[in-house]
Write a protein that binds this DNA or RNA. Sequence first.
DNA 1: GATCCTTGCAAATTATTTTCGTGATAAGTT
DNA 2: AACTTATCACGAAAATAATTTGCAAGGATC
Lengths: 286, 286
Amino acid sequence: MDIFSTLQEEKARLSPSETRIADILLNDFEFAVNASIIELAEKADVSPPTVTRFCRRVGCESFSDFKVQLARTAYVGMRYLRPEPKSRDPGDVAQDIITKAQNALFLLHRSLDLAAIEQAAEKIAKAEMIYAFGSGGNSSMIASELQNRLFRFGLHVTASSDHGMQLMLAAAAKSTHVIVGSSFSGRNTELVRSFTLARETGVTTIALTQADSLVAKAADIVIPIDLAEGNNIFRPTSTRIAYLAAVDILASLVAYNIPQAAVTLRRIKQQLVAHRDGDDRQLLGD
Amino acid sequence: MDIFSTLQEEKARLSPSETRIADILLNDFEFAVNASIIELAEKADVSPPTVTRFCRRVGCESFSDFKVQLARTAYVGMRYLRPEPKSRDPGDVAQDIITKAQNALFLLHRSLDLAAIEQAAEKIAKAEMIYAFGSGGNSSMIASELQNRLFRFGLHVTASSDHGMQLMLAAAAKSTHVIVGSSFSGRNTELVRSFTLARETGVTTIALTQADSLVAKAADIVIPIDLAEGNNIFRPTSTRIAYLAAVDILASLVAYNIPQAAVTLRRIKQQLVAHRDGDDRQLLGD
DNA sequence: GATCCTTGCAAATTATTTTCGTGATAAGTT
DNA sequence: AACTTATCACGAAAATAATTTGCAAGGATC
């Protein structure tokens, strides 16, 4: 699919010369993407044909195809390999954070289970009542975001970040209701309890969480969001951005499953347009 | 800087042949990025030299440089030109949203005022007390995010989304304090009032908002976040993602301005490691 | 010792760029 | 209005550069 994944997989099987080429890609990417095959060959101390063969090996048609592929994925793929910013210089820090965020989106997109999302969207669109559960700074934000997005389509929805409240809501929920729970860690046992309780009465439970986690196992429908973890505890923003995007996708698909949604949205839009005398229109963005 | 911006700017000045080349880029981008100069020339019904001249015109060294640039920016730049998803198919919707989000990050990165952010970071790092203000679904999230990030460095910080409370806090603030206010629209007049009030007592005010907006004009330091607006009211997620990234950058730079931050973070880390018997470590991610 | 893999050399092929010249258009001149 | 001149766009062909292929040598492995 993308060169960097292939490179990770093939790494062990590469010959010495090919390894030297790979090293240049990883270390001096800017050079690699701008160099001609001759320049690259010289720097890697190999012959041009070896470079061509290397390109074929990582799944490209030709050297120029390789460069295009490289340039295409590099923008988002690089940080995957270089986890720390080069320096404390504001420019480097900014670039590091931006690229990490874009990378998170990239990885999310690649690992997205569209069938699960579509299934979840259909259930949500038909639900008589929706509960959005999430606790902790990150997941509670996701829960309110869900509420924020879904009420606009005329759906009945409430968000809760309180475990006790979640349990009570889950206990009172009916089979026509849907619970959407978010857990970055997948280890929110309180959420698991709510899910288990709700499923006894036939409530549909949807989880936004790590695949195969405790929370995932407790839910009817799982929208898995698996991002490279590691340092993520100290840098949670990129993970959160991925979750936000996932909610955005889910909400958009819900809208397509609701015939009236277009009408409701149009009404909101007209109201906004009618209102916008003093550019008030923008105020609703805050 | 990137081809698509240049193309937008140069569009009017292009000759008929060059316009045909540009059209192919915009309509059949996949072809363009994979084609040789001859194939591209044939499709545009021009001669290869014309293609070379076109590449130079849009700021590239050569045709191959052009293709690399194209491939590089295309990943994020395409949605700029094609604002709607191709279909309602989940895959297309997902791709549309992801690309829009990445595009927002891309544009943020390009328009970032690093000097302002660095200046803001220094002020925040030295402040005796920090107030994070923001109202409405979007900006209030940014305010709590700021609190969430800054308290970890041992800073004194509180977030408020309540206009009345903001006014009172602003009135009581001292010259050693800092107010950070967020307004997506830049037209939050209540926030302007708080800023104005606070500045009377020499409080440093920092705004995350649109450049040249009302809020921007009322603040000491402006971290401008200007994204192509248009449909953004109905698709606020990508703008929010950009704001989140901006906060992330700001917070990281604050950390570098605080000598003890590393110590505090290390202590948190050690606590986490000590705690992680049952992989509890991950729980804090929620 | 046979086989397979890796690699570089040189030739062949292909792609790209430069040079140069033609024709068109626009502006200025008589 | 007709002519001249300048400027520009564009393509043909030549020149150059880059890339690929075929082949053979060297080295590792069985």
